Simulated scan of single mutants.
Amino acid sequence: MRLATIGGALVLAGGLLGPTLATASPLSDPQEPNTTAAKAGVERGNATMGWRDGVQRTGVPRAAGDTRVTAASKVTRAGKLVPMTGVVGIDVSSYQGVVDWVSFTKVKRSFAYVKATEGTSYRNPFYASQYGGAKTAGMFAGAYHFANPSGKSGKKQATYFVQNGGAWRNDGKTLPGVLDIEYNPYGGTMCYGLSKKKMVAWITDFLVTYKKLTTRDAVIYTTADWWSTCTGNTTKFRSTNPLWAARWTPKTGAGKLPGGWSYYTFWQYSATVIDQNRFSNTAARLKVLATNGK
């Protein structure tokens, strides 16, 4: 659940920040949420991973001050994280505001992904503190981009992402960037008005540009339903790009994977309290992923 608090000015202890943010003004594109997205709490131009997971985010006000989101946050409707075996982590966005990262490491959350950008018009105002805070707490950290294929090209959005937090560092703790491509929260069609062929071309444009700018293959976050409907279940990326499968069924597993992938690299298994994720392998393999491996 992304119901949390937004504080005032943020100061990050130790001065550790994410990749340098660009200073150029972002391009604008219309992004009024559709009825379904509005009911799910999506704000104009600011959707999050798995926004259509059925968890309502409205009705809980964001408190003022520097109240922090913790592993046992009292400002959410549930009081504890969903248990899961293996290597687990969380993902956050501006909805979480100030995060007490140490509290998550104490319950063995070892990695975090932070929303950096959306389209070519949105930058998470909490990105630097959230990303840097996760790193300072000793977690592996990475950034994600919420795609808007009905807006600018894949190339322009990948460039915007890299310039505003999505760049990769060879420091052994930075995970590859993520293309979050899922249900359209703004238009009337789930596929952003694109044909399957054009959607695959848009995704290709983004991924090729991201790799050219960072040397890394981006992770693809999606659902089996969306991938099948909007790309024709293309298998084009199964051997190059890690899959982040979204299926909120912690007791029954990730289910049938899309696109010919034989395994997931990450699995978003719950959105209770906060988005929770499982890495498919060991902590040692997670470090390999952060050091230019797969």
Rank of each mutant, 00 (worst) to 15 (best):
I6Y: 13
V11C: 02
G14N: 01
L16C: 05
D29N: 02
A37V: 08
A40L: 11
A40P: 00
R44V: 08
A47S: 15
P61V: 08
R62Y: 04
G65R: 03
K74V: 02
T76V: 13
L81N: 03
P83I: 01
V87D: 02
I90Q: 02
I90R: 04
D91A: 02
S93I: 06
Q96K: 03
W101C: 04
S103V: 08
S110F: 05
S110Q: 03
V114M: 07
K115W: 10
T117S: 07
E118C: 03
S121D: 07
Y122A: 06
A128N: 14
A134G: 15
T136F: 10
F140W: 11
G142H: 06
H145A: 10
F146P: 02
S150Q: 14
K152Q: 10
V162L: 09
K173S: 04
G177C: 06
L179K: 06
I181G: 06
L194I: 05
M199H: 03
F206T: 01
Y210V: 04
K212T: 11
D217R: 15
A224Q: 12
D225G: 00
S228H: 04
C230T: 05
T231C: 07
T231Q: 08
K236V: 00
A246C: 11
R247L: 13
W248I: 12
K251V: 03
T252C: 00
T252E: 12
G253D: 11
G253R: 12
A254Y: 11
K256P: 01
K256E: 08
G259V: 05
Y264R: 08
T265E: 07
T272F: 00
S280D: 02
A283K: 14
R285D: 15
